[in-house]
Computed example of a mutant assay.
Amino acid sequence: MTTSKGTIQGYNGIAINDDKHQIILQAQAWGSVAEQQTLKPSIEQLKKQLTNLGTPETFSTAKFTADSGFHSEANLKFMASTGLDSYMADNAFRSRNPLFKMSETYQTEKEKRRLKRSKGKPKQFTRDDFYFDKEAITCRCPAGKSMWLQSKQIITQGKAYTRFSGFLKHCRVCPLQQQCMRNPPKETGRQVQFPDETNRVVSYSDKMKVKIDSPVGRRQYSKRLGAIEPVFGNITVNKSMNQFTLRGQEKVNSQWQMYCLVHNIEKLRNSLH
C-alpha cells in the first residue's frame, strides 16, 4: 500500500451497509490507500450480492451515499451509468454549506487548525483574492500590481485555464510576499490561473455539486453519518478490530469479512428481541 510516507504493508477495509438495520451487504479489503478505485468493484459486487439474495430490484431503488474519499469524475460517471440515486461529497462540500460559513465556532476551529499546520504563518492568498478582468484578460494581484499573461489557454488535469504571473521585480519587494508565496521568489513571481468558462463542459462533478448542495441532497447525505459510522465504530472499538493482524490480501480479506459477519450476526440477534 503506497502512502505519503512510502510503501507499507497495509490494507483498507471497505464496507457497504443499509441504513435501517446497519447490515453489511458488501465487504472487501483492498491493498490501497485511495478509495476511488475501490468503488466500481464494490458496487458490482453489491449488485451481484443482491441478485443472489433474490432482491435485485433493491439495487435500482436504493439511495447510495459515500464520502469525499470516493469522489472522482470517473466514479461519478460510473455511478450515473448504474442508475443508482447516489450522493457523493467532494472536498469542498462542507465549505459550501451556509451553516458552516455563518458558524463562528467552525471558522474559529478551522483557523486554529490552519495555524497549527502553518506554524503561525499568515493565511495565503487564493485565486479569489486576485482581480481578474475576463473581458480585457488582465489581472492584478492583491497588492494592486499588474500581472503578465503567461498563457491564454493552459490545460491542467484536462481543464483549460488562463494563467498569469507576477513580475519578479514586484514580487521580490512586495510587503505581502509572506501571504502570497510560501517561499521567496527566485526565478518567477506568483502564478495564478483562472478557469476558462467559454467552452466549459458540465462535468459529472459539477452535476453532483448541484445535487448534493440542494436541501434534498444535504438531507440525504446527512444520513450517511448515522448509517456507516456506527458500523465501523462497532467493529473497530467494540470488537477491537483497529488493525489487521494477518499478512496477504486473501488472509486479510477473510479476516475483515469475518468481523463483518460477526457484526451482522449481532445485528440480526438484536433485531429478534
Rank of each mutant, 00 (worst) to 15 (best):
Asp206Cys: 04
Arg182Ser: 15
Gln153Arg: 15
Lys159Thr: 03
Met208Thr: 05
Asn199Leu: 09
Asn183Leu: 14
Tyr161Met: 11
Phe167Trp: 08
Cys171Ile: 02
Pro195Asn: 07
Lys211Gly: 04
Gln157Asn: 12
Asn183Glu: 06
His170Ile: 02
Glu187Ser: 12
Pro195Arg: 06
Ile155Gly: 08
Gln150Met: 13
Ser165Trp: 00
Lys159Gly: 12
Thr198Asn: 13
Lys152Val: 12
Lys207Gln: 07
Lys169Gln: 12
Tyr204Pro: 05
Cys180Leu: 00
Thr162Tyr: 03
Ser205Met: 08
Gly189Asn: 04
Val210Cys: 04
Ile155His: 07
Lys211Gln: 11
Gly158Thr: 07
Glu187Tyr: 14
Thr198Ala: 14
Val202His: 14
His170Met: 02
Cys171Arg: 04
Ser203Glu: 03
Gln178Asn: 13
Lys169Gly: 01
Glu187Arg: 15
Ile212Met: 05
Lys207Tyr: 03
Pro184Gly: 11
Ile154Gly: 15
Met208Leu: 02
Leu149Lys: 12
Gly189Gln: 00
Gln193Ser: 14
Cys174Ile: 04
Ser203Cys: 02
Ser151Cys: 12
Gln153Thr: 07
Cys171Phe: 01
Gly166Asp: 01
Lys211Ile: 02
Gly166Pro: 03
Ile154Trp: 10
Cys180Lys: 02
Thr188Glu: 03
Gln193Thr: 04
Leu176Gln: 13
Arg182Gly: 13
Cys174His: 06
Pro184Thr: 10
Gly166Thr: 00
Gln178Met: 15
Gln150Gly: 10
Val192Asp: 08
Arg172His: 05
Phe164Leu: 01
Asn199Ile: 00
Ser165Tyr: 03
Gly158Asp: 03
Pro195Ala: 08
Gly166Asn: 02
Pro185Thr: 09
Asp213Thr: 08
Pro195Tyr: 03
Asn199Ala: 09
Ile154Lys: 15
Glu197Pro: 07
Leu176Asn: 15
Glu197Ile: 04
Leu176Val: 10
Pro175Arg: 08
Lys211Cys: 02
Ser203Asn: 11
Cys171Met: 03
Gln179Cys: 14
Ser203Gly: 13
Gln157Arg: 15
Gln153Ala: 13
Asp196Asn: 14
Arg163Gly: 02
Gly189Glu: 00
Phe167Val: 00
Leu168His: 09
Ser165Met: 06
Glu187Thr: 15
Ser203Ile: 00
Thr188His: 13
Asp206Arg: 08
Val173Phe: 02
Cys180Glu: 02
Ser203Met: 06
Val202Gln: 15
Cys174Val: 01
Asn183Asp: 09
Phe164Tyr: 05
Gln178Arg: 12
Lys186Gly: 06
Phe164Val: 00
Thr156Arg: 15
Lys207Gly: 09
Asp206Ile: 01
Val192Met: 10
